[in-house]
Design a binder for these strands. Structure first.
Lengths: 168, 168
DNA sequence: TTGAGAACGTCTACGGAAAAACAATCTCCT
DNA sequence: AGGAGATTGTTTTTCCGTAGACGTTCTCAA
């Protein structure tokens, strides 16, 4: 799959000599374009996490929902959407899955009949504890290229980028 | 659009007191989950760039293609795909757009009739120069939350994450 | 009390990226 | 020379996230 190409592909028919830059241009690009580096790094991380999650019963979004419910108590879907940065329309299916698995229930809010009070069940609480136990090792694998200090730095910088948004 | 909510939404019907954590949970989350922080930061950056590019004649991908052609000379679509981390099937439409605008031409490779030799035209060269002039100011605006040094650090860390991939 | 406007949850439509399938062509091995 | 397998570009399909519209319900003001 990741085999190195056996032969040089294209002998620069229209410009100067090749010089090896051709097959390492990505390095040049990411050196001067932080946006591209950030975007591509996210793709790599997301792909690695998806791979780690093959066969898992919880998606990343569902895990985050349980995590937030555990931290702050029952929430409306709106609150979950805002804090987890997941669109409302996506949150619907996310909660659907959790509810059909019995990990949460949609109770009606006593004072606002528009909103639900998404509440974690005992089953959900146990599922969260189980999933949570696997997170730290997974992060260690996914971010293995970074030292603990570098990981903290990355968190600090990304949070700084996020702080420009309201509620960041 | 980004108006602050006027009233507390849900008075924690099933757990302990609220305590303000409810409306700032995102900060807590990103503090311990580098993957989420990275992913959400990318979304913010991508959105900011999309906003900057309203009315632009070049997409980000098309700009990168021109940039690479300028740096290394004529390329096959495969080479562009690999180095820019853009899927082959996406590259097709990307080059289609550039070609219909006259910025590149698809010449046949002399020794491999499967591949094209995507070549930048004079018009493309001028379009690249024009677009390139706007990049630095745009990056300054998009990454305004970071100092130049922090930006370099971010690049270094993301490149380290990317280095685990072949060809990174 | 009544009406205008906003918020919540839901559904649908659109667009962009990844995966799979395909024809044409190339490479390598015998 | 010939045939199996890989590679290039393309099309098609699928999936995910976003945006928009909608009904219900709430809030606020008259």
């Amino acid at each position: 799959m990741a085999t190195a190409p056996r032969t040089p592909r294209l002998a620069s028919p229209s410009r100067t000599d090749d010089g090896g830059e051709r097959r390492q241009y990505f390095a040049t690009l990411t050196r001067e374009r932080p946006d591209i580096a950030l975007c591509r790094a996210t793709t790599v991380v997301a792909r690695a996490i998806d791979e780690e999650l093959t066969g898992a019963r919880l998606t990343v979004a569902q895990h985050l929902v349980l995590k937030m419910l555990d931290a702050v108590g029952a929430c409306s879907q709106q609150e979950l959407s805002e804090q987890l940065r997941i669109d409302r329309s996506v949150m619907v299916g996310c909660i659907d899955g959790l509810e059909s698995s019995g990990l949460v229930v949609r109770e009606r809010h006593p004072r606002d009949r528009r909103a639900y009070a998404v509440t974690m069940t005992e089953v959900g609480s146990r599922a969260l504890a189980e999933a949570e136990a696997g997170i730290a090792p997974m992060m260690d694998r996914v971010f293995a290229a970074l030292t603990a200090e570098e990981r903290d730095t990355l968190i600090r910088l990304t949070r700084k980028l996020l702080a420009v948004q309201p509620g960041g």
